[in-house]
Simulated scan of single mutants.
Amino acid sequence: MFRSHPGRAILGLAAAAALTLSATACGSESEDTSTGSASLPSASADTGLAGKVPADIKAAGKLVVGTDSTYAPNEFVDTDGKSIVGFDVDLFNAVGQKLGLTTEWRAGKFDSIIPGVSSGKYTVGVSSFTINPDRLKEVDMVSYFSAGTQWAAKAGATLNPDDACGKKIAVQTATVQADDIKARSKKCTDAGKPAITVDQYQAQSDATNAVVTGKDEAMLADSPIAAYAVKQTGGQLALLGDIYDSAPYGYAVGKNQTEFANVIAEAVKALIADGTYKSILDKWGVTAGGIDSPAVNPQA
């Protein structure tokens, strides 16, 4: 999710119940924990990297990971109603394995996760966070993927994303997309056209449902999320326009935890080198967003 701190179907009618459960269980603060997906082989531990893990984190033996698990296919609740799975989950679990650490996933509201990292509630925030200057004032970030914004609407819709004045548009709250659509609405009113009605939802799954059910006319979300929603709705939704404003996702760690951030970046590089990174991206159909060189605070 190309999501900002100040960018998550009905997934076909058969999946509606599971989706509702996901949004209910994880769209709000929760102390539910999960080890995440275990469907891929374990990444091999790297003793050299494990030796670079800060002493306090090594002593804990685990990484407590904050995530908003309503953003399929990046992070979402599995059909059992409790396990957190997805591309982000598989990849960061592999990062933990490289560092000789386990992961404990905790679900929370998207806009509470970075504050939770800053307060020490979470060791790391992993929730499709776009790296931007505002976030870098609060936390250090390690790039690991690239995504842009993509629109979607009911199949056959003729709505033009560049002229959505007077339309009802769905977004997840506290995202880059929410800022984007507000700016587009202002352009409409500045030009004497009707404002865009912006419907904001805590969970991306609810925003997508609003388009499928006709409550809203279109939505915008991170490119992998929009593409996944289209796939899962079995033709009910279609993508509109092109992907734009691509930027890196980043893992969020405490501000000035440079040592820890650097070792996470090295772990991602090791996963790229041994092929684990590509295998995980291929599994979730998000290969187009792969990067070659993870970096700490790349926009700092």
Rank of each mutant, 00 (worst) to 15 (best):
121 K>W: 10
75 E>S: 09
112 S>C: 12
131 I>Y: 03
91 L>N: 02
107 A>C: 14
131 I>R: 03
137 K>R: 11
73 P>C: 08
70 T>F: 01
119 S>I: 12
138 E>K: 15
135 R>V: 03
111 D>A: 13
151 W>Q: 08
99 L>A: 12
98 K>I: 09
105 W>H: 07
84 I>E: 00
151 W>V: 05
64 V>F: 05
87 F>H: 07
150 Q>L: 15
97 Q>H: 10
89 V>P: 00
149 T>M: 14
117 V>R: 01
149 T>S: 15
102 T>F: 04
153 A>Y: 12
59 A>Q: 10
113 I>E: 05
81 G>R: 00
120 G>D: 07
124 V>Q: 13
58 K>D: 11
89 V>Y: 00
135 R>I: 06
78 D>M: 01
130 T>S: 14
128 S>W: 05
132 N>R: 08
82 K>F: 02
100 G>V: 05
153 A>W: 10
73 P>R: 15
146 S>L: 11
151 W>A: 04
81 G>L: 08
136 L>K: 02
104 E>Q: 15
68 D>E: 06
114 I>K: 04
151 W>D: 09
82 K>S: 10
92 F>G: 00
90 D>I: 00
72 A>V: 07
140 D>Q: 03
101 L>R: 02
141 M>Y: 01
105 W>K: 07
95 V>A: 06
73 P>M: 10
119 S>M: 13
132 N>E: 13
84 I>N: 00
63 L>C: 10
151 W>P: 11
63 L>S: 10
58 K>F: 14
